[in-house]
Simulated scan of single mutants.
Amino acid sequence: MTGIPAEQAPTTTVGAPPSALPEPSDLHTAIRVGQKMLATYGNTSGYDIYAYAQAHGGLAEALRILLRALNAEPAAEGVSGTPDTPRCPAAHPEDPTPCSGQPTVTVLDAKNASADGCQHHAARLLASLDGGRVYGLPHATPGTAIRVFKAAASIRPFPWVDGPRTRDEQLSREEVRARGEGQ
């Protein structure tokens, strides 16, 4: 024997991260998220509306983390779209209107990409899609999907875009139907 007391090897829990690695900073996390967002959504050609909604959500979260790391967070105003009340996935990034409540329906496009949304944004999204469909979520009151479908018929596609609208694809379904009946 050598006379040197034996030391206990450090114990670790299976699956626990090594204690030698430092916790990543908010800035480092924001940078990683931003890099991943650019790698995934940097080229937007060929994406469906669901991919845009995912990209918007990821981008908004990356910006929140970055602003928090720089100690420059915006003051929470309690309106839809702030960190306190995020907007529903059916809300288009350029649509400035707030949500009308919790998501109650799912809107599907012609390729079956989907986005859950409040009744307001679901109707606006459905009005902007060709071949879109709407289904009520399990917790929605009966008739919710029908109300959204009927509301979408009177909404012009991409209603937040200003400018003259003269072609059928720029008008609401009701306006197109009325135009056809008048001839």
Rank of each mutant, 00 (worst) to 15 (best):
V79Q: 11
E7P: 07
P93M: 01
V107K: 01
Q119M: 10
A153V: 12
W160F: 05
C88D: 04
L27K: 15
P96E: 05
A60G: 03
L137S: 01
R173P: 03
P18W: 12
A115G: 00
P142C: 02
R147V: 11
G46W: 06
T40G: 04
V161W: 09
R179V: 03
E73I: 08
H92Y: 11
V134L: 03
T11F: 09
G3V: 03
T106Q: 14
H56K: 06
A153S: 12
L67K: 04
S100P: 00
G136L: 08
I155V: 15
P164T: 08
V176K: 03
Q170C: 07
G3N: 05
T166N: 14
R64H: 11
A76F: 13
A152C: 04
E169W: 15
S154P: 03
L67R: 08
C99M: 00
P74E: 04
P157G: 03
R147T: 13
S172Y: 05
K111P: 00
E23I: 12
T144P: 08
G163P: 01
L125F: 08
P89A: 08
Q183M: 10
V33S: 07
T40L: 13
G34W: 02
H56Y: 11
A72F: 03
R167Y: 12
Q183N: 11
Q8F: 13
D162P: 07
R64W: 13
G78D: 00
R68H: 10
P159T: 06
I4M: 12
P164H: 08
S25D: 05
I155H: 04
I146M: 15
V176G: 04
A90G: 01
R173Y: 09
T11K: 14
Y41E: 04
E61S: 14
V161N: 12
A115C: 09
E181V: 11
S25I: 03
A152N: 02
Q170P: 06
S128R: 01
S128I: 02
S19H: 11
D116S: 15
C118K: 02
R177M: 09
Q35D: 11
G15S: 11
A123H: 01
T2E: 10
A72I: 01
Y135M: 12
G42H: 05
A69I: 02
Y47H: 07
A151M: 10
P89T: 08
G42N: 07
P157W: 07
L66N: 02
L59K: 04
G163V: 02
T13S: 11
V107F: 00
V79L: 10
E73F: 05
V134W: 00
P24D: 05
A30D: 00
P89D: 02
E77H: 09
P5D: 08
T44H: 07
D26K: 09
P17K: 15
L27C: 05
F158L: 15
R133A: 04
P5R: 14
E7C: 13
R32M: 12
D168H: 10
P10I: 01
G3M: 06
A9M: 06
E61I: 07
A123S: 13
V134S: 01
A6N: 07
K111S: 13
E94H: 09
I155N: 02
P164M: 10
G131C: 04
G34Q: 08
H92T: 06
L126D: 03
I4S: 08
E169D: 14
E174W: 12
R32P: 04
A113I: 04
S154A: 13
M37W: 15
V148G: 00
T97A: 14
A113T: 10
S80C: 06
V107P: 00
G57Y: 01
C118P: 01
G143K: 01
Y52T: 11
G131Y: 05
